[in-house]
Simulated scan of single mutants.
Amino acid sequence: MPFRPSARQLEYFSALAEVLHFGKAADKCNVSQPTLSSQFKLLEESLETVLVERSAGVVSLTAAGERLLPMARQVLENLDEFVLAAKAGQGNLGGLIRLGVSSTFGPYFMPYLLPILKQAYPGLELYIREDRPGLLEEQLRSGVLDCVMTPDITRSDQIEDRILCHEAVVLAVPRTHPLAGVGVIPVSMLRGEKLLSLGQGFRLHNDVQELARAAGAEFRQDYEGTSLDAVRQMASIGMGLALFPAAYVASEFGKEPNLLLKRVEGVPLNRTMSLAWRKGSSRAGHFEKLLSLSREAVLSMQIDGVTLPPDGSTKDT
């Protein structure tokens, strides 16, 4: 590895060039003269370049010293800017957060969170990536993302996670379906029914699969949707029944006249949304504050079926 001057060595060089006296330069840098002299000599030896002339107590810059001094001062200025930028980021959760959000949750939650974040940390830059939970978790582990909001996260010794909220999942039934008149549907009444789903990689895909297995229903893998909107449209024209999370229902079902929402009895239909980051991250404090603000956003949603965990706090930790 090539030699790199230390910041202190460049500080000694800059001070010496300013006062042209070893003793005064040492006072300016709050070190002893032998310390400054020995470090400056090491700098010259390592660079194989004489930076100052010394004769009869008079110090002057050599041609090489004159040429290198502006560069040394620029390096020190850049280091100062580096520290200032870091300190500025401390007041804005690090300045930038690369956040991954499940595409079945983010579009219906972020409009509540973003104004709260903007008010609390106006200088924060937020890079948001929506994707399937499995891909988000992979990008979190690889360092592409700083943290993720995802349902029913896969537990790992590489990931630290905190519960953001619990979200109910309900069954959508066409108005013309025989089950439309049933208030709460026993799971046994779904035997033989066709169930629609999102594609693989979504947690709802697994939920539908488990419901079909428990009920003896038909899991329609030949008609898997790429989005909740696509699944809703398929269900509305009678292609099958479908599961939808509460935040999506609150956002999108006001314009859906052809489907009725039903609770299924006999199986737990809900999901747990979590905020997760890499275990041991030095930014854990930032993510804990993001979690606190995210829980405030959950409260502001006022949606039936979206609830904080029992010990959920809206205060910064």
Rank of each mutant, 00 (worst) to 15 (best):
D311I: 10
L51F: 11
A63K: 04
R129H: 12
L140N: 02
V144R: 12
R4D: 05
E81R: 15
L228W: 04
L291S: 07
S197M: 09
N30W: 10
E48F: 00
G65H: 09
E44M: 00
R98H: 14
D157K: 08
E77F: 08
F22K: 06
T104G: 05
A64C: 03
E256W: 01
P34R: 02
L69S: 00
L145F: 11
S142L: 12
L241R: 02
T317K: 07
K289H: 13
L269W: 10
E265D: 15
P107M: 11
Q74W: 02
D304Q: 07
F287I: 06
I128W: 05
V267A: 11
K28F: 03
P268Y: 11
L259N: 00
E288G: 03
R263V: 15
A217Q: 03
Q90D: 13
V144Y: 12
Q74S: 11
V208L: 06
F244C: 06
M301P: 01
G266R: 06
S37V: 04
A25I: 12
G183S: 04
P34A: 02
V58M: 14
Y12I: 13
L195K: 03
G312H: 04
S32T: 15
S14M: 04
F13C: 05
A214G: 05
R98M: 08
Q221H: 11
Q39D: 14
E130T: 11
H177K: 06
R191E: 14
R54Q: 07
C147M: 03
G65L: 10
S274C: 10
L43D: 01
L113V: 09
F82V: 04
V267K: 11
L10I: 11
L93H: 05
Y248C: 10
V173S: 01
H177A: 07
T314K: 01
E44L: 00
M71Q: 14
S227H: 11
L204M: 06
F202A: 07
T176V: 10
A242D: 02
I128G: 08
L61E: 15
Y112N: 13
K41W: 12
E138K: 09
Q302E: 07
E288T: 12
M71D: 11
T49P: 00
Q158D: 01
Y121F: 15
F22E: 08
L135F: 12
R283W: 10
I159T: 05
T272W: 06
I97K: 03
D161C: 14
P257Y: 07
D157P: 03
T62E: 00
V31G: 05
I185P: 03
Q33I: 09
P268V: 09
K194S: 10
R54V: 06
C165N: 15
L96N: 14
F22N: 01
